[in-house]
Design a protein around this nucleic acid. Structure first.
Length: 256
DNA sequence: AGCACA
């Protein structure tokens, strides 16, 4: 799918043997005729080589560059150009306030961590081939799925071998993708539903807090939509409900 | 193929 307009041109199919300073200098001379370039980002690690990001000061400049340079042979290889799929830091810095820039960067780094965690889990899956053992369905003590009853696990009576496929390695809580339900952990005993309603009720689209009978320290908070949950999470991250400033509540998205 | 910005 084609990316929407962006100030940044994502270049791929670049010759990988060219040294980074040479590459960026060449891209600079080639692209500067289409507009002002704020920055060019190119790296040489395995996942990033052969690609570059050319940050223009406007989407129009980026559009011109893509139209004109598409397929141009650079170091004997035809460049493939498209809009970058996210805004460059340099763009946000140039166009937004410092606090927005700060927020952008925090979100970006969080997303980067999340991707990294997913890759790590993927890599495990591909080398480990774990034996079928144990309740590897994730969080046996803290499952973030209140509405489902405990999965009928390998400990089912009868001593039958489970025929279930080994569970895929799970992404840690903190990297779960956003959704409209938050999962709270490490709540102090004094965190009554009144208190939680007071705190989480002030974010857009709040629906309800659900305590889990018989489970101390955890709760779920549901919003009408993802946006509400995201803002609630961002604003309650690291919040401490204990008396002295202890008892930092862990706020993540519900595992789906 | 691969979407980064220590």
């Amino acid at each position: 799918m084609a990316e929407p307009r962006n100030n940044t041109v994502y270049c791929r199919n670049l010759e990988e043997s060219v040294k980074i300073p040479v590459l960026t200098a060449t891209l600079e001379t080639l692209f500067s005729q289409y507009g002002t370039i704020l920055e060019i980002v190119a790296k040489k690690n395995l996942r990033a080589r052969g690609q570059a990001f050319v940050v223009f000061d406007s989407p129009d400049a980026a559009e011109r560059a893509i139209k004109e340079v598409q397929g141009f042979n650079l170091f004997e290889k035809p460049m493939v150009l498209q809009y970058a799929k996210t805004k460059s830091d340099a763009t946000v810095q140039a166009e937004s306030s410092d606090i927005e820039f700060d927020a952008h960067k925090r979100r970006r780094l969080a997303e980067k961590d999340r991707k990294q965690a997913i890759r790590a889990a993927e890599a495990q899956k591909h080398l480990k081939r774990p034996a079928q053992s144990g309740p590897s369905h994730g969080l046996p003590a803290d499952s973030s799925r209140p509405t489902k009853k405990a999965a009928t696990g390998p400990s089912a009576p009868g001593g039958l071998k489970s025929t279930a496929a080994p569970a895929a390695p799970q992404i840690p809580d903190e990297y779960l993708p956003p959704n409209k339900i938050l999962f709270l952990q490490n709540l102090p005993d004094n965190a009554t539903s009144d208190i939680l309603n007071g705190i989480f009720g002030s974010f857009e689209g709040f629906k309800e807090v659900r305590l889990v009978p018989g489970r101390k320290g955890i709760a779920f908070v549901e919003y009408e939509n993802e946006a509400g949950a995201i803002s609630a999470k961002e604003n309650t991250q690291g919040m401490s409900l204990g008396p002295d400033g202890s008892g930092v509540v862990k706020v993540t998205y519900q595992r789906q």
